[in-house]
Design a protein around this nucleic acid. Structure first.
Ligand code: FES
Ligand code: FES
Lengths: 158, 158
DNA sequence: CGTATCCCGGATATCTATTATCCGCGATGT
DNA sequence: ACATCGCGGATAATAGATATCCGGGATACG
């Protein structure tokens, strides 16, 4: 069980975009260079974030990416689900209905207790991620980093 | 991000062992047959559970598996961590220290805010799993299933 | 209108983790 | 002694994650 590294990339890029002026989109290679990421592969994850409605992409010269809405309205869960999907990490294969101990289908109208427990834990995980926004992440940056990022983005955009 | 199917196997087998008489170990092929699982591969997961101290294995004729302690003292988290490991699903690669926007190492004494949020969600997930025991799982079985399992296990052991 | 820039989507290749099986070894009960 | 059964290593097939490339379409600018 391992989360895709794209989650780390997406969260960092999204919080970086939250530090950029809203009227000036950031090019993909600037984002990739800022964190030392492979440009072509980062594109895949940013496309997923765009499809999910977290980012907004502008083609053409002076194009790039910007947030689709204000950072206060983007939760960490939004970013994670855009990249990892919204399906539970636990996939029940209904083994209780297989083998010599198979339970008859009419006794399986209720979900299996094991499945319920795993789904509840998954919900707790998602609830925890839903409680933090991208704006919160920016607030927690070490002092001075935000100013430096603003300078770097301005230099790249000029 | 997908959990191994071994988690479902391990939880079902552990709760089935909780329904067996404590003095009579259950053979692996009986467990595999009960749920229609590949015997050789199930062995790998049961070995992991044994190494983790959840199950106790007895070699030789009349051998097999039994719980290492009472079902009330085995949490779902114990089983999950035996199979999936206890490391967080999110692996931080410290991308904040790479690329043109690299933050100086002395500013990275505190963990990255993104990493903290992901680790906190992981802790919430594990807390949720820790709150349920194997005994709870057996209690939630549909009526009649426990009796049938006891009969099947007795027949296989006789 | 033409052109340079930039994102989108599909195809492809590589690497890793998961899934699955087999066999020799050692331990155990009869 | 002998048959049974779990342990651990070796091995292979499959699926998923990682990474790159290219053609197509949209946009700004002259
Ligand atoms: S049958 Fe899938 S979790 Fe019980
Ligand atoms: S550097 Fe890894 S989560 Fe921020």
């Amino acid at each position: 069980m391992k989360l895709s590294q794209g989650v780390e990339w997406g969260l960092h890029c999204t919080s970086l975009l939250a530090q950029a002026p809203a009227d000036r989109p950031i090019r993909r290679d600037v984002l990739a260079g800022h964190y030392g990421l492979p440009d072509a592969y980062l594109a895949k994850h940013l496309q997923a974030l765009t499809r999910a409605g977290v980012l907004h992409a502008l083609p053409g010269p002076r194009g790039g990416y910007r947030l689709a809405r204000s950072p206060e309205r983007i939760t960490v869960l939004d970013v994670v689900e855009a990249i990892e999907g919204s399906t539970s990490a636990f996939v029940c294969q209904e083994i209780r209905q297989r083998g010599t101990g198979a339970v008859s289908p009419d006794q399986c109208s209720n979900p299996c207790a094991i499945r319920s427990v795993m789904d509840q834990a998954d919900a707790a995980w998602r609830d925890s991620l839903r409680g933090v926004t991208v704006a919160d992440l920016v607030d927690r940056l070490p002092p001075g980093v935000r100013e430096r990022n603003a300078d770097l983005l301005a230099a790249a955009g000029g």
